Amino acid sequence: GHYRIRINGREFEIRGISEEEIRHLEEALRNGADEKILKEIVDRLRG
């Protein structure tokens, strides 16, 4: 998958993330885990 997200007015492209991972992120966001989720995304993109 290849997705664009906007955070604090800046747009980011996220590549190589699966539909299942996105559902997991959405679930966590609904549970209020904003900073933790951003850290997970950044860590994943770093490799």
Rank of each mutant, 00 (worst) to 15 (best):
1 G>L: 07
1 G>A: 04
2 H>I: 15
3 Y>I: 06
3 Y>P: 01
4 R>Y: 09
4 R>L: 14
5 I>A: 01
5 I>F: 06
5 I>E: 00
5 I>R: 00
5 I>Q: 00
6 R>D: 02
6 R>K: 10
6 R>N: 08
7 I>E: 00
8 N>V: 01
8 N>G: 13
8 N>A: 06
8 N>Y: 07
9 G>T: 01
9 G>Y: 01
9 G>F: 01
9 G>N: 04
9 G>I: 01
9 G>R: 01
10 R>Q: 14
10 R>F: 13
10 R>L: 12
10 R>Y: 13
10 R>A: 09
11 E>A: 03
11 E>K: 02
11 E>F: 09
11 E>W: 15
11 E>L: 13
12 F>K: 00
12 F>P: 00
12 F>I: 07
14 I>D: 00
14 I>A: 01
15 R>P: 07
15 R>W: 14
15 R>K: 09
16 G>H: 12
16 G>L: 07
17 I>W: 05
17 I>Y: 02
17 I>M: 06
18 S>R: 04
18 S>L: 04
18 S>A: 06
18 S>M: 04
19 E>K: 10
19 E>R: 09
19 E>Y: 10
19 E>F: 12
20 E>M: 08
21 E>Q: 13
21 E>A: 08
21 E>K: 04
21 E>W: 10
21 E>H: 05
21 E>L: 05
22 I>W: 13
22 I>R: 04
23 R>I: 09
23 R>L: 10
23 R>Q: 13
23 R>C: 05
24 H>Q: 14
24 H>R: 11
24 H>D: 12
24 H>K: 11
24 H>L: 13
25 L>V: 06
25 L>G: 00
25 L>N: 00
25 L>P: 00
25 L>M: 04
26 E>T: 07
26 E>L: 12
26 E>D: 07
26 E>I: 09
27 E>N: 11
27 E>V: 07
27 E>S: 12
27 E>A: 12
28 A>V: 13
28 A>N: 05
28 A>W: 12
29 L>S: 03
29 L>F: 07
29 L>Y: 05
30 R>Y: 09
30 R>P: 02
31 N>H: 07
31 N>Y: 10
31 N>V: 08
31 N>G: 10
31 N>E: 09
32 G>D: 05
32 G>P: 04
32 G>I: 07
32 G>Q: 06
32 G>A: 06
33 A>M: 12
33 A>T: 11
34 D>F: 15
34 D>W: 15
34 D>G: 12
34 D>K: 05
34 D>P: 13
35 E>S: 11
35 E>W: 15
36 K>I: 10
36 K>C: 08
36 K>H: 13
37 I>C: 05
37 I>Y: 12
37 I>P: 01
37 I>K: 09
37 I>F: 11
37 I>V: 13
37 I>D: 06
38 L>T: 02
38 L>Q: 01
38 L>V: 08
39 K>Y: 15
39 K>Q: 15
41 I>M: 14
41 I>E: 02
41 I>Y: 07
42 V>A: 04
42 V>Y: 09
43 D>V: 08
43 D>Q: 10
44 R>G: 08
44 R>D: 04
44 R>Y: 12
45 L>W: 12
45 L>M: 10
46 R>M: 15
46 R>L: 15
46 R>C: 11
46 R>W: 14
46 R>D: 07
47 G>M: 12
